[in-house]
């Protein structure tokens, strides 16, 4: 028994640098200079999930992304982790796609490559973080899917069981294959690339498709094909005029207690906020 597996990955600006992102005052565009582009962190969990399935059951892992040409580097990294093949969907016509148009394009890309028993994605991308691409992709492909998967178990070639995280718990499901799973960070611990992996990755196939290579409805792609359209962008107002409490620890804590009382807390009570209300 073996599985044909696809993993959707997205290159994103490294989230540990988001504090540095600014909006250009004149052009109103996002300035992300000097921020490296990496594989969306949770997409590495998706790659790991696929590799583990392959190691246990046999099969083949194809990574796919819709991204600018520079994404080759990120695809090579996925190949170095252990994926067998990579596919890059890249075209100016894809630019500005919302989740609806992105998922449509990915679906047509996957159909072009072949049939997949399993598709893995991350739960959300760090930059846009809509978390909508996985469910929409499954919808275009007309296959079962589950989002926010914290754990899964393949029963046989036809079925798998998976847990979808919800607030304070999870719901367990049985899914018929082919199926798409959007995995969360808890699902596994992504492996690191090794020197050997990097060497091997250089020789693995990396195929590029443009819009003309795919069977696409041109009205469904890019910004023009997107039902949602972006308007203004701005940064949220955050600044507060903070007051620093200084002195020895005893003095600081004494001032702090005064501040808490001034804010209406009743420190004599076990529910400091409830007192004084009806």
């Amino acid at each position: 028994m073996s599985f044909n597996i696809a993993v959707c990955i997205k290159p994103v600006p490294d989230p540990s640098h988001y504090d540095k992102i600014t909006i250009h005052p004149v052009n109103k565009t996002i300035t992300r200079e000097g921020i490296p582009t990496i594989i969306n962190p949770v997409d590495k969990n998706a790659i790991e999930a696929a590799l583990q399935v392959k190691e246990k059951w046999g099969g083949k892992v194809t990574v796919i992304t819709m991204a600018p040409p520079s994404a080759e580097e990120n695809l090579r990294e996925a190949l170095a982790m252990g994926a067998d093949e990579a596919v890059l969907l890249t075209d100016r016509a894809f630019a500005g796609a919302d989740t609806w148009a992105t998922s449509y394009t990915l679906a047509q890309g996957l159909k072009k490559i072949g049939h997949f028993d399993l598709i893995f994605t991350g739960t959300e991308s760090a930059d846009g973080a809509t978390s909508q691409v996985p469910a929409q992709l499954a919808q275009w492909l007309k296959i079962a899917h589950l989002w926010n998967v914290q754990q899964f178990k393949i029963t046989n070639k036809e079925e798998l069981q998976a847990q979808m995280k919800i607030e304070n718990g999870y719901i367990e499901y049985a899914l018929k294959l082919p199926a798409l799973l959007a995995v969360s960070r808890e699902c596994n611990k992504p492996r690191y690339t090794t020197i050997m992996g990097v060497m091997k990755a250089k020789k693995k196939p990396l195929i590029t498709y443009t819009a003309d290579d795919l069977d696409l409805n041109k009205d469904f792609i890019g910004l023009k094909g997107s039902p949602t359209q972006p308007g203004d962008i701005y940064t949220p107002e955050l600044g507060r005029k903070g007051q620093e409490l200084t002195g020895e620890v005893e003095e600081i804590v004494a001032q702090l207690i005064q501040k808490l009382r001034a804010a209406g807390l009743n420190l004599e009570s076990w529910n400091a906020c409830a007192v004084g209300r009806e």
Binding site: P15, Y18, P230, Y234
Partner: peptide
């Protein structure tokens, strides 16, 4: 971008 930017949709 983790809340650093807000955008109208």
């Amino acid at each position: 971008f983790g809340g650093k930017v807000l955008g109208d949709i």
